[in-house]
Write a protein that binds this DNA or RNA. Structure first.
Lengths: 205, 205, 205, 205
DNA sequence: GATGAATGAGCTTTCATTCAT
DNA sequence: CATGAATGAAAGCTCATTCAT
């Protein structure tokens, strides 16, 4: 399944905001600016200017700035989890599943949702504690999917190191690609996924 | 050589500020607070309170807030580079050298300089562009050391993937440990280093 | 005559808005909220919410917020004056008339119109100057009725102090009951009226 | 004892702010403006302009606008209570004491503290609930002095009505003078006090 | 009539920075 | 060197009012 297809479903379910609605355009601009300049250096006036409205109008859609950050984060983490579930269900072997873990994350980081994903990772401390808890719930669900999968790989001898430790190391390696990988460079996203998979799995084919 | 020994040398050379001087205490507090709350959410008053002076007095030591952030970053990046140089010189085999790359970075992230290292990584966008350039120079020197070393490992067949790509993946994996590795947990820093090394090098123990 | 009877007449005459009409319900809610929270701390949205419409719709009934405050004030001051006229006409002796002055005011402050009466007294400065003038006219008519009556009482030797001064003192004493008198407490409104009358008239039972 | 003498003592004790200090000048201006335009229609910019500083500087002296209102109120209620205590101690007969109750209040309403006294009375709802409690404590102390005194007058047959009710009626009559009494008019403040005393006490001189 | 998104001026508050003492 | 009051620009947010639907 393609990400686009899933997003349409999530929009229909109300879990993700339609990017063509005023609120959705605001979230998109927020993701872009928060990533570019950081949350606290982005003013609501910047945000408003980006979507062509006035600063006061923002507060028709969000109660405060924190809620915008929350919106960006919760929607992308939701989409990541849902997409991962669907993709894992489509994979047959454990090896394929591990590949799915990696590719799914790379897809969200370097696809259209890249800004939101980067914000989710790098603006964590800027979110109010109460809302951190809500995002955390979702993120834990997502991590659980990783853990189950890597545990299975460990049981089958595909990997030898502690699955929990490996998850964190891989996650770090993938997340960091935000800073250097260029989608339109020499290496395709698939090749990058393969490199990471190689790092994850000892021996092979 | 221990980090402490090196730092004393760098202090003597004026490349790093004596942490017992007023300016040094300020930098230490800045590193801690910038990491904890983020640069823009840390006020100059917070900083002053942390070291027991009043906000106005800070500007006897630094021209502005940006210069404080710069101070934190430039000193840690300098120390990381210098320490890496020394440690690499002490290593004999290429394998050992790769290990040194990893351990050196882990040491800076989880040792006494951890706060500054985290700030270097996560507050990059907060630094003014002109000073970013200055830090970048140093960081490029540091990366060059990694590249040379990994290139050699590649030439010797220790690693098979593109050294540049591997460097970034490893760097990401190591940097991310900031978020999950606990120095006083079950796993020692050395064991962690070994895990990363295993991930880096195909084949043997 | 009862207040209710008079109000029906005033509604028929168009001097007071029917409290069951949308506009009337708005005025009632405004009186309540303006008294409770004060005019400037009551938002047009609060008002709309109270009567179950949306904020924009308010401006079909009133040109602006100031006009709502004016509506509350002018209607209650009108009713107070009209009611006082009727009641004075029904009184025979001067003593009875003074009693009517007092009771009429107490009735408006502690009856159904209490909120509006309190707003009239305590939100004076919030009203635009131009509209203050209009309310002032009515209020002066009302005061004239007091003055005439107290002057008569003075001429008859019922009171000895300056009628104008006495009017203000009594008015103050009555208005302040807003803050402490409880209609469902031990003292009936009539007993309260008697206490005030005693204060007003020297001498006899 | 004169009010000025008492205020000097209270300033020395730190219970009242020196009106010549920056903070004191701010409180004076706040009392004036809050009375004139109402608390919520007075902006901190108005306040700053009134004392010739910039709006930001206000927050060196007060944490927020609410604290300014609190400052105005708590200082005047404190002074009223302290002044009343001293004056009551100087009075010999009960009749004199009742006169002191009245005169003290008139003095605060029409003297230099008049603005603050008016704010205390008319901006009550604008104060945050937590701080209302603190002012309430002081005000209750003040009312207790009234009650004790009027109770004594009742025991001695000077007054016949319920002391508690009388206190409220008198208080209302006095407070309302804010709206009509002019210190530079025909009637002196002493004459006004006498009128109120006459209203309070049956029988006479 | 009612809606509700948008407006835009204006609010309180924050904060890096300055400077006379 | 340290102080701390003052600065002033800019922040997040509020809210009466408008208007196309």
């Amino acid at each position: 399944m393609r990400v686009g297809t899933l997003l349409r479903r999530l929009i229909a379910e109300g879990q993700v905001t339609d990017p063509d609605s005023p609120k959705g355009r605001l979230l998109g601009a927020a993701a872009r600016l928060f990533r570019q300049k950081g949350y606290s250096r982005t003013t609501v006036r910047d945000l408003a200017a980006e979507v062509g409205i006035l600063s006061g109008s923002i507060f028709h859609h969000f109660a405060n700035k924190d809620e915008i950050l929350f919106g960006v984060m919760i929607e992308v983490v939701t989409a990541m989890e849902e997409m991962l579930k669907v993709s894992l269900a489509e994979a047959t072997t454990t090896r394929e599943k591990v590949r799915v873990l990696i590719d799914n994350e790379l897809l969200f980081i370097h696809g259209k949702t890249g800004d939101a994903a980067a914000v989710l990772i790098y603006e964590w401390r800027a979110l109010s504690e109460e809302r951190q808890r809500q995002v955390l719930e979702r993120r834990d669900n997502y991590y659980r999917l990783w853990n189950e999968c890597l545990q299975q790989a460990h049981d089958e001898g595909l990997i030898t190191v502690d699955p929990d430790c490996l998850r964190q190391l891989l996650h770090g390696a993938i997340v960091w690609t935000v800073h250097w990988y260029e989608a339109d460079g020499e290496m395709s996203l698939e090749q990058l996924g393969e490199q990471v998979l190689n790092m994850a799995l000892k021996g092979e084919p």
